[in-house]
Design a protein around this nucleic acid. Structure first.
Length: 577
RNA sequence: CGGGGCAUAGCUCAGGGGCGAGAGCGUUGGCCUUGGGAGCCAAAGGUCGCCGGUUCAAAUCCGGCUGCCCCGACCA
């Protein structure tokens, strides 16, 4: 491709609001242009990279017998009402009406749509299993679009859906996709870490996110600084030596000299902070109690150390269902006190004790009486410790649950892919069934698998970009070679340049503009992403040589014009094997 | 959704009740130059976001709206 014949441009001044590296480079290099908040045009250059990424994904999907479809983005509300998501999705769903006042939305994801397609076709066990995918736009009216295409309102996603006959078959399919994802990201040269994701109680059995570590991520992850184990912060575990702590507590509980619990007046200490300040003790001495009501209507009292935060995801996972905090009147009628003053000392129902509470050897807990707490509270002595669970958020400095020695550090990550075992979450409400060999009707077992394609592009720029521009790895670079004739008006340079270009035309971008300075050409070369830079200039005049620079490694070679094609091929083949 | 900010040329921005509304970059024409966005000459290019108000007079002051940006909340 010749620059003079292409639609390609760059900006001298990138907009100041470009916050992340990828936003800056992609805008400055003319890959994308903002149309509205969180909505972007892709230019031929940007679209070219996007398609390379899509091609890698497409190949790997086809490799696992996943078939490509094209689903509408304008979708009728009826389908969303079948699963209840019309109401569950809030303002993020872009809704509108057609001329007949029928409600529609722009699809943010396609579970309902694909399930509708599939139920039209599937009747028998003979039709199963199979999986389908598509690559296309998704619409989510994000409250705050950010970092260019990292968090956009319209973005490109690959979404796949699997349909199996039973759980076992579906699990196998899940892991098949999981492995395909590993291959995809490896081929894309992007380092992702598969981490278990929160599924809540409704999601099903498994879910993994493929996380790319970057400051522009929106997910918090905990990483062990020693063994580099990574987990999402919401569900990250951390090491607590429960046996040792229980042994210590046991001795404390039996120690006759230990001060007995004592009721003290603590007026208006409705929060942990106020209580700690009032008693002049660290928050870590307080045993925080909160009372929950589960989806099935059961109650439980949960205890967490005062300086710790409960993880709603971990707690939901632990009890196996969703829950909410019991309301004030329920708490009052069961404990006889308001929320800030309840404790485990008299409660006879289910008590879930977070492991961090085991550190409290003379703690403070609510007295079940407004404006009163007990001090010198010893777990096991003063209340039963039967159910020990891991329900608090991991924090910086906690011990890694895997190697049990390194410290956890909080980092930011960006979700590039997500695999989800759905079970019958959609097939049940939407009546996607088949008749099995035994003539009984069964629900199809589903999974869904997404990759944020445009977000992968941004991540690649985050990884391979610098202040001046970006050099993509050959497999995804828009052009593999960027040819710069320093002065194309010079006949010798022009002749040599066009000769080289004719030999490697298919993979090259030739900057044949004759009206701009060399500096401008070099600047654009930095921006336009080719991993190989070929310069035809004074070296040709002086020594008859061409300069080849590998922008990814910085390696520089001087070769004769006749050898350029060979050199380029050598490099590309080495990278591709 | 809460808090804050911005809106003037294609881009980045200056100006601040009245005078022909400005700069740099970009664009067009001419010249010069060719190893890191170089230089000279000339020209084109504006609903000063929209609606209303105050005023003899509004791009400028006031109010509303819209859009965009930032912080936070939210983000199967």
């Amino acid at each position: 491709m010749k620059v003079s014949e292409y639609f390609i441009f760059s900006l001298k001044e990138a907009p100041k609001d470009a916050e992340s590296k990828s936003h800056f480079i992609l805008t400055k290099g003319g890959y994308i242009k903002k149309l509205a908040s969180g909505i972007y045009d892709f230019t031929p250059l940007g679209f070219k990279v996007l398609k390379k990424i899509e091609d890698v994904i497409r190949e790997e999907m086809i490799r696992i017998n996943c078939y490509e479809v094209r689903l509408p983005i304008m979708t009728p509300s009826e389908l969303w009402k079948e699963t209840g998501r019309w109401d569950v999705y809030g303002k993020e769903l872009i809704r509108f009406k057609d001329r007949n006042e029928r409600e529609f939305c722009l699809a943010p994801t396609h579970e309902e749509i694909i399930t509708d397609l599939v139920r039209f076709f599937v009747n028998s066990w003979r039709n199963l299993p199979f999986s389908l995918f598509q690559i296309g736009p998704k619409f989510r009216d994000e409250a705050r679009p950010r970092f260019g295409i990292i968090r956009a309102r319209e973005f490109i996603m690959k979404d796949a859906y699997s349909f199996d006959r039973d759980e076992e078959e579906a699990e196998n399919t899940y892991w098949k996709f999981y492995r395909a994802y590993e291959r995809i990201f490896e081929r894309l040269n992007i380092d992702v870490i598969p981490v278990e994701a929160a599924v809540g109680a409704i999601g099903g059995k498994f879910s993994h996110e493929f996380i790319f570590l970057t400051d522009y991520g929106e997910d918090k992850v905990m990483e062990c600084e020693k063994c580099h184990f990574i987990s999402k912060k919401e569900i990250a575990s951390f090491f607590v030596d429960v046996d040792k702590l229980m042994g210590e507590l046991m001795r404390e509980a039996q120690n006759q000299n230990k001060a007995p619990k004592k009721k003290v007046h603590t007026p208006a200490t409705t929060t942990v902070e106020k209580l700690a300040e009032f008693l002049n003790i660290p928050t870590s001495k307080i045993i925080k109690s909160f009372f929950i009501k589960t989806q099935r209507g059961n109650y439980a009292l949960c205890l967490v150390r005062g300086d710790r935060q409960v993880s709603e995801d971990k707690l939901a996972q632990y009890i196996g269902e969703n829950f909410e905090l019991a309301d004030e009147s329920e708490v009052k009628s069961i404990f006889g006190a308001g929320k800030g003053f309840i404790g485990p000392l008299r409660y006879r129902g289910r008590i879930i004790v977070d492991r961090t509470v085991l550190y409290c050897k003379d703690g403070v807990a609510g007295a079940d009486e407004d404006d009163f707490h007990y001090i010198n509270v010893v777990p096991m002595r003063d209340f039963p410790v039967k159910e020990i669970a891991d329900i608090s958020l991991a924090e910086e400095g906690d011990i890694c649950p895997k190697c049990k020695s390194g410290n956890l550090r909080e980092k930011k990550g960006l979700e590039l892919g997500h695999v989800f075992y759905l079970g019958t979450k959609y097939s049940e409400p939407m009546e996607l069934t088949y008749t099995d060999k035994d003539k009984t009707k069964k629900y199809v077992v589903m999974g869904c698998y997404g990759i944020g394609v445009s977000r992968v592009l941004a991540s690649l720029v985050e990884k391979f970009g610098d202040e001046r521009g970006v050099a993509f790895p050959p497999e995804i670079a828009p052009f593999k070679v960027h040819i710069i004739p320093v002065n194309i008006k010079d006949e010798i340079i022009a002749e040599t340049t066009f000769k080289i270009y004719s030999e490697i035309k298919d993979v090259s971008l030739l900057d044949d503009r004759d009206d701009i300075s060399p500096g401008e050409k070099f600047a654009d070369c930095d921006l336009w992403g080719a991993p190989i830079k070929i310069v035809v200039g004074k070296l040709l005049k002086d020594k008859g040589k061409i300069e080849i620079i590998n922008r990814l490694t910085g390696e520089r070679k001087e070769v004769e014009a006749e050898k350029v094609k060979e050199e380029v091929e050598k490099y590309l083949n080495a990278k591709n094997e």
